[in-house]
Design a protein around this nucleic acid. Sequence first.
DNA 1: CGCCAGGTGGGAT
DNA 2: ATCCCACATGGC
Length: 245
Amino acid sequence: MKTRRGTDFARIYHIMLESYGPQGWWPLLRRAGQPGFDEEGYHPGIEPELHTTDRFEIAVGAVLTQNTSWKNVRKALRNLNDYFRISGTGLSPEAVCEIGRESLAELIKPSGYYNQKAGKLMILGSFFAGLQGIPEREELLNLWGIGPETADSILLYAFDRPVFVIDAYTRRIISRIDGSDLDASDRVYHRLQETIQEALPGDPLIYREYHALLVEHAKSRCMKRAPICDDCPVRSMCNFVVQIL
DNA sequence: CGCCAGGTGGGAT
DNA sequence: ATCCCACATGGC
């Protein structure tokens, strides 16, 4: 429940960066295969200049990945990009508004919750179609289907705002490291976000990398069915390791 | 097989 | 304020 003070978030970041290397988030499927981008759209080591279409693709991906694996989201994004490329418009807010909820649902089916998410994407498209400049966090939160994590992902990865994204992986890893029990409430979200933001410089590039590193650490090691604590880069700082010794 | 993934909103207590 | 549930596909 309570984050133990004293957990060294800056040190964890540096250790994970050293151990796993730059992650190249947020993946941009539309630019996959271009110089600096791998086949899945990751761009480790380079910070691409974002175009308007990239920002929208990131926002769409942020909605589609709600409680859903990126593997499934990638299929849905591929469908969207392919469909709108062939139709000539490319994936744009206007195109998403005009295609119709049914067709949209069909395209994003692999990402799950496709009826709900089709509705969310139409609202998102309508918002982006009228958007000028950078959205306020409150504006995003007022959209049906956008909660704190989705809003912060959009702000951080699409608009370079220095906000740290708290996701399920982050909560669970931090819970293990500092021996706390962080739930999914808005209050804990805010508290953990503030704590981490105070521990690190307000640099969007660092916040992006850190979040991506935590996800990598979770997927490859900490949140596997049987956690791999052998040779864990943060083993010496982790309360969970101590418990199972 | 069963479990769960880069959450959110709505409704009941 | 806090729980409980619906939403849904595909990978492991």
